[in-house]
Structures are given as structure tokens and as C-alpha cells.
């Protein structure tokens, strides 16, 4: 079963890594601010899932606390930026 798990890892990890790199390219090219923030969001949730997968890969129970924190925190940046954009619009 451990062997089967490592085969699954061998397929899944390149998929996740390429997805993260493509999201990063979108963040570099993104013409407006919401595009960049959307890419940050996607990268954060993606990495949260990736961390949970890696916790099984390293066989360590202590690593599983990190994805909870990252998933809870990832949408904060959206709210700050939205507040800034909305309030700028109000003042005008």
C-alpha cells in the first residue's frame, strides 16, 4: 500500500507544481489588481491542499496543523483589498 501511495504521489506532485507555476505566471501578467489577488487566493488554497498531501508523504502528524491556518487566512487579503477599493470609490 505504501508503494501504491508513492506511485500516486509521483503523478500528483507534478500536477500540483505545474498548477502553482501557471498561477504564478497569471499573477505576473495580471493587468489589474483583482487579477493578482485572485491568483494569490488560488495559490494559497492550492498550497493548503498540497501541504495536506505532503503530510502523508512525510508520515508526520505534526505537520497537519499548517493547512488549517493557511486555509483560514487566505481570504483575508481579498477583504483588505476589497475594502480599500470600495472606500476609494466612495470618497470620489
Amino acid at each position: 500500500m505504501e508503494h501504491a501511495f508513492f506511485i500516486v504521489m509521483g503523478i500528483a506532485i507534478p500536477l500540483y507544481l505545474s498548477a502553482i507555476v501557471i498561477y504564478a505566471i497569471r499573477a505576473i501578467r495580471g493587468p489589474t489588481v483583482p487579477d493578482i489577488i485572485l491568483a494569490v487566493d488560488c495559490i494559497s488554497f492550492d498550497i493548503a491542499a498540497f501541504m495536506a498531501v505532503l503530510a502523508i508523504y512525510f508520515k508526520s502528524v505534526f505537520l497537519i496543523g499548517a493547512p488549517i491556518i493557511l486555509a483560514l487566512w487566505a481570504y483575508l487579503l481579498d477583504m483588505y483589498v476589497a475594502k480599500l477599493l470600495v472606500s476609494k470609490e466612495e470618497e470620489r
Binding site: A48, I64, P67
Partner: peptide, 27 residues
């Protein structure tokens, strides 16, 4: 822990997208 994380993502990700779209439309 991973199930809890999944539920948190399910709750939080749509709210983030929503507020971003709202702000982008409003600005």
C-alpha cells in the same frame, strides 16, 4: 484535520471570490 480544512475552504473561498468581484465591479 484535513476534513476540517476542507470544510473551511468550502466556506471561505466563495466569500473571497464574491467580495473581490463586488469590489472590482464597484470600482
Amino acid at each position: 484535520a484535513s476534513a476540517i480544512t476542507a470544510i473551511i475552504v468550502l466556506l471561505v473561498a466563495p466569500a473571497g471570490s464574491h467580495i473581490l468581484a463586488y469590489a472590482a465591479h464597484k470600482a
